[in-house]
């Protein structure tokens, strides 16, 4: 099937089998390898992308379902060539170690702070509870998202 997905603001037309998962199309057809795969059971969340602005697991969505819709991946987080505040905050607060869950965590975090500019620790932990991290114990991920919220608040 021929489908067209807007990815990070650019329309991409690809011919795919219906069974192809969105994550595979992003990674192997469009070369956007910042979206990762970590499990087979919709449990880990490292494949998270934004579908029309909403965080979803791209391993549990066929690419054909995204036909005509807008997808945002980690590669689309930068704004006018500058790091998104969530990206800067993850580095500043040591919110990552191996980096494998990081794109997903940042995408979820970026949506949270848009919807809730002043999230509590519980708000943040709840928001990222569909995303596993094996390295950080989540402490610095929570800090990074909080820092990003503060950065955005301070600049607006």
């Amino acid at each position: 099937m021929e489908i067209t997905i807007s990815v990070n603001g650019t329309d991409n037309t690809v011919d795919v089998e219906p069974r192809m998962l969105l994550v595979d199309v992003l990674r192997t057809r469009l070369g956007l390898t910042g979206t990762h795969i970590g499990c087979d059971t919709t449990s880990c969340g490292v494949c998270t992308v934004l579908l029309d602005g909403t965080p979803v697991k791209s391993c549990t969505l066929f690419a054909v379902q995204a036909d005509g819709r807008a997808v945002k991946t980690v590669e689309g987080l930068k704004q006018n060539g500058d790091l998104h505040p969530i990206q800067a905050a993850f580095k500043e607060a040591h919110g990552l170690q191996c980096g494998y869950c990081t794109p997903a965590m940042m995408l979820v975090g970026s949506v949270l702070i848009e919807e809730n500019p002043d999230p509590s620790e519980d708000d943040i932990r709840w928001a990222i509870s569909g995303n596993l991290c094996r390295c950080t114990g989540y402490i610095n991920i929570v800090k990074a998202i909080r820092l990003a919220a503060e950065t955005v608040a301070a600049s607006s």
Partner: peptide
Amino acid sequence: VLAGGQSLIPMMKLRFASPGTLVDIN
């Protein structure tokens, strides 16, 4: 019928379910 797919697609990925046709109602 494919709505949210959050139970169906995981079963299909593990090949526990293999429908001939998916009707996406989204």
